[in-house]
């Protein structure tokens, strides 16, 4: 028996699983899906920042537009850290399509005005 704390929403349901088919304690379908994914291939949305040139701020926040495999996070960070954009930056701008073959795009999550 293993306990998984669901992080899909702030309810933080405590799910119990036997590591195979039995999953108990979830309150919604999303919780069930989360527990299944946690047992097979846990995923997370990666959020970070990239360098901005000529903007009112030196960094612009970015995210993967869908969760990517947890084991790929650190490698993805290397890609993120190699990026640089010139201001002005729009929100939602695609920086890397299909990052590391995950089908997720790396996109900006804020605007940065130029100086």
């Amino acid at each position: 028996m293993k306990e998984i704390i669901c992080i899909v929403c702030p309810n933080g349901c405590h799910l119990i699983t036997d590591g195979a088919d039995r999953i108990e304690g979830y309150k919604c379908e999303r919780g069930l899906d989360y527990a299944k994914a946690e047992m097979t291939n846990p995923t997370r949305v990666l959020t970070s920042t990239i360098r901005v040139v000529g903007g009112i701020h030196r960094r612009c926040s970015v995210k993967t537009d869908r969760p990517i495999s947890k084991v790929l996070l650190m490698e993805a960070m290397e890609r993120v850290n190699s990026l640089e954009v010139a201001a002005p930056v729009e929100c939602g701008h695609v920086l890397i399509k299909n990052i590391m073959g995950t089908e997720a795009n790396l996109v900006t999550t804020r605007e940065v005005a130029g100086i």
């Binding site: 929403c9 702030p10 949305v45 959020t47 920042t49 926040s61 995210k63 929100c91 999550t109 804020r110």
Partner: peptide, 17 residues
């Protein structure tokens, strides 16, 4: 900059910005 904002209000996960 992390995500998880707006789950109740927008019914989707947004980052703070």
């Amino acid at each position: 900059i992390h995500n998880g904002f707006g789950l109740h209000y927008f019914k989707e996960e947004l980052t703070g910005p």
